[in-house]
Amino acid sequence: MTGSAAHPPRGGPTPTALPTDMLTHVELTWVKKKIEHWIRFGREAHEQILDRRRRVVSFRPGAIFAFVRWASNDFGTIVSRIDIVRAVGAGEPCQTLPFVRPGGDILLRLDGWPKVERVLKVIDGIEALDIDPAEIAPEHWRHIHNRLTAGHEPRAYSRTQHSAWLLRRETGK
């Protein structure tokens, strides 16, 4: 049965991005030991709770966030993935990504638990420097993606590299 304005479809609210909506929306689901989608880092601009297992978090254009997806069935893990994404502005080109509307600029995309775990450790290392992972140079996420995809160890992010990135960002170069 389809819904109308007077009678919305059953099953609860469906999040939609309005044409005037400038935010990037990420649908998160948590069904313990079955489907676990979460944000590892990023500054959320808005949160909408859909029900006890689902919510939608939203990010402003330019915000960088890490989206982790894990799922299992009776036989074990079937999906283990991490995406580090830059939220895009209206009309900006973007790549599609499941559960992310309208999509984003994917800086890192890895799957398989060993690689996901490695990225989570890299994030922990950045936080150990007292640096917000959402604030580091976007090209460093691409570097990590490329190195891990090739089976190599990525270079560690440093305070010096971060200072250079902040100066470059400040001057617009």
Rank of each mutant, 00 (worst) to 15 (best):
W165M: 03
L97N: 00
F65Q: 06
T171P: 01
V68F: 15
F75T: 10
A17G: 03
M1W: 04
R155P: 11
V79D: 02
F99H: 15
E135T: 11
D111Y: 08
K33H: 03
D21Y: 04
V85W: 03
H140T: 11
S72I: 06
H7L: 15
L23E: 01
H140D: 08
V79M: 13
R81G: 13
D74C: 08
M22Y: 02
H162W: 08
Q161T: 10
H143Y: 08
T14H: 11
L110N: 07
E92D: 12
V56R: 02
S58Y: 07
G3Y: 05
Y157C: 11
D111G: 03
D51M: 06
W38K: 10
G151P: 00
A71T: 13
P8I: 06
H162K: 04
L167W: 04
T29D: 14
R159C: 04
I136F: 01
S163M: 03
G91M: 05
R10C: 15
K34P: 07
C94T: 06
R10F: 12
R147M: 15
V88A: 11
A134Y: 02
V68A: 02
E135H: 01
I131G: 05
R53M: 02
H46C: 07
I49P: 05
R86Y: 03
G104E: 05
L97W: 12
T29F: 13
L110R: 14
W30Q: 04
I39H: 10
